[in-house]
Design a protein around this nucleic acid. Structure first.
Lengths: 231, 231
DNA sequence: CGACGGATTGAGGGGATTCAAATGTAGTGG
DNA sequence: CCACTACATTTGAATCCCCTCAATCCGTCG
């Protein structure tokens, strides 16, 4: 974990979608005092562990993380992936302790926002921003649930690839070509499939010219065809 | 939909777990002005429809509801069940429009809390209560996700029954004997299984003396045995 | 009583998993 | 820099769990 020159909220590229959204400049200054400068995490670094005291959320400025729990048999179950522009840790706010592990999947820059300090400032706009973020996450959560329940393995994988594409597009990146930071094993775990099944589906989609993969770079060739598969 | 004598938040049995939790009496009075008196809904009544303008949440004082979406093929997919003590509609807060349909599964009494009016009052405690509620729901959401992904059909059903048991217990009701307000078809839909599979699992569990069903009344005979199945 | 929807049970087929092995890729240390 | 190792990915074959289809049973309500 390396230190970097502090970047303040007031100069941050995520300002419009993060906690400070809609705040007046003077309030952003207060927020600055409550957030730590962004930290650079190496690949496979643990950001926080399940059960640990946690009164912060983390904004992903670059890179990506996976959140997972470990069940009584020691098996890891991934509950969510988060990429650039996401806020991590919202589900831990109620209990004050982390509901999952959070681990970087690549070199990533995260910005910690200490909520306990923030709430003490009584900025109503901040709380309503958090409500917005959380409500949106709830909606996403059930959307993902719909993908996983009651659909074939192919539909799950296609819906997964399209949802990342949408996320990338919403953050100004290419929706037809992006890097998949997670392994096939992680994807399989997340979707409740066997690795082999995921791999077979990738090759099948490639044979049909719908997608292409080169290393971890994924290219989507035919959106309409893919979208028709998840309908 | 029938009217009843108004019950104010200040006299409500759900006070401690609902939006007014922790408010001072004078604030509860303000809240009272923002909520409508509880309404009695008949079985299979639609509380709200997907896409409709919605700036309220609903507290379930009695009865139960199911939330579902309808996909492009017209197929209903249940996203959540809610029973006594739950707050419904949190995921719609961000967009201002309902993310799902909400329908009663039995005669139910719901209390509408109009958030738009509430937020105008600037009661910081109310917003932080909502944050708590929503964060807890997020945690529940991923817990349910864990049940559905990567487990056998039996594990899904057992985990489902146990989660309802826990909910009942948390609300002062018996954890070993309760009424299942939803049909087997609904359970199957929710868990992503075929009705027949759910039915077969119920009979198998009965044959092993782990549970009993009489009409819609479910009795749990052996918690430890059931819990060992989901581990 | 008859009709209807919900629940149960049986038989058969198919999609996904498991097991097994080969290939490809990345990371390490000599 | 390359051999070596560990891990990720891919592919094949066999099995199994769950789904689909179909028929029957049960409880409720008109």
């Amino acid at each position: 974990m390396t230190m970097r020159t502090p970047i303040q909220c007031s100069q941050c590229s995520m300002q419009s979608i993060c906690v400070p959204a809609g705040l007046v400049p003077t309030d952003v200054e207060i927020l600055d005092k409550c957030s730590r400068e962004p930290h650079l995490f190496n690949k496979r670094n643990v950001v926080f562990s399940e059960g640990q005291k946690l009164n912060s959320v983390f904004a992903i400025k670059s890179g990506s993380v996976k959140c997972y729990t470990i069940d009584s048999n020691g098996k890891q179950q991934i509950t969510s992936f988060h990429m650039v522009g996401d806020i991590v840790g919202l589900e831990s706010l109620a209990s004050g302790s982390a509901a999952t592990y959070c681990e970087t999947m690549e070199t990533s820059m995260l910005c910690e926002i200490r909520l306990s300090k923030l709430f003490a400032q009584e900025l109503p706009k901040v709380e309503s921003n958090l409500l917005q973020l959380m409500s949106r996450r709830l909606a996403n959560c059930s959307k993902h649930y719909l993908n996983v329940v009651n659909t074939s393995a192919e539909q799950k994988v296609v819906a997964f690839l399209l949802s990342i594409s949408t996320h990338m597009h919403q953050h100004g990146l290419s929706r037809s070509e992006y890097r998949l930071p997670m392994t096939r094993t992680d994807i399989a775990n997340y979707l409740g499939l066997a690795v082999e099944t995921v791999s077979r589906i990738f090759t099948a989609l490639k044979e049909q010219q719908l997608i292409n993969t080169e290393q971890s770079i994924l290219t989507i060739n035919d959106f309409t065809a893919l979208e028709s598969r998840v309908a």
